[in-house]
Design a protein around this nucleic acid. Sequence first.
DNA 1: TTGGAATGTCAACAAGGCTGACATATGCTG
DNA 2: CAGCATATGTCAGCCTTGTTGACATTCCAA
Lengths: 182, 182
Amino acid sequence: MLGRRKTKRGIAMHDTRGAQGFGGEALLYLTDEQLRQGIEAMFFAYRGFTADPDRILADQGYGRAHHRAVHFIGRAPGTTVNNLLAILGVTKQSLNRVLRTLIENGLVESRVGTSDKRERHLFLTDRGANLESQLSDAQRARMRAAYREAGPEAVGGFRRVLEAMMDIEMRRAYGKLKEGQQ
Amino acid sequence: MLGRRKTKRGIAMHDTRGAQGFGGEALLYLTDEQLRQGIEAMFFAYRGFTADPDRILADQGYGRAHHRAVHFIGRAPGTTVNNLLAILGVTKQSLNRVLRTLIENGLVESRVGTSDKRERHLFLTDRGANLESQLSDAQRARMRAAYREAGPEAVGGFRRVLEAMMDIEMRRAYGKLKEGQQ
DNA sequence: TTGGAATGTCAACAAGGCTGACATATGCTG
DNA sequence: CAGCATATGTCAGCCTTGTTGACATTCCAA
């Protein structure tokens, strides 16, 4: 179906096969099947990736949207709404709904900008930081376990593929966050 | 904030640092910051991962839920509803809504089981296979590009970390799909 | 002083999760 | 055969989180 079988080679395949090509360029012999497995791995892994935070959030009546906001505010304290909008890639109405509940519930503080008073700078309160660290702890624990299980050499490859999979604009946003933290 | 800085080391860090530990076990020195970057990479990469299919789907009035159904039906033709339910991890009501529109629109065919007539076996029609290959082509193209950019050594690590990040049940489902295709 | 940017908010809508309840076949087992 | 379990479908209603469109406010900058 869909030509998958057509692209299979008649020999035993390993998960990945790399080979040095001609002009010094690294070539990958990637069958459709290998790519499909990568796609499915991404799908299932993302579910695992969000599973722990989802449970914590559900207990407290929040959702993933709240997690994302809390995460990036914790990551870049003082960030503006517009900034957050760009990173999250949602509409301001959508973000605002989430932000409003977080502010009402005392997890996030919104301070009027000092230089430009139109801007709002967002900060986690102690309660917000508390939730953030619960979520982060769970997610980091899973990530750490996965890294350990996959082995030291795997981590670099993992990160490189993920970075290459991002849209260009997101790669910039991601890079900025990385730099901001060291 | 949140103790991130506390865990930083005072020396230059590379993206990953592995070391052979004592009892022969590979140890990873992973700072919170490194783990956080992995988390964010996962977040941004998943966006990229779904971006191309999302555009194609939106054009035709479908969503990600339809994509998932079409993908796994194409992947395991003749699969039962219950089977699909387990893989997708949603309720039957949720799946049914999606499946119903796909059947109505002639993308999926539902055949009564031969041995057990309670079961329905699901297949893509030509139109369904057509959409599936559009979506798959786009997603594989991105995956292939990411693999190429990351280099041959990166691919194995990528896959190993993803597999380790899955929940155990999903790892089994994933394994079955892999085996089913070779 | 005026246009545009940043923000907030209201309303309405859609997708896609969920729960609960119930119906219909069909299979299996005592 | 009777009765329970299983597989599926469906209705209704709810929630979160995305969308668009419209509009108000505040404030910067030319």
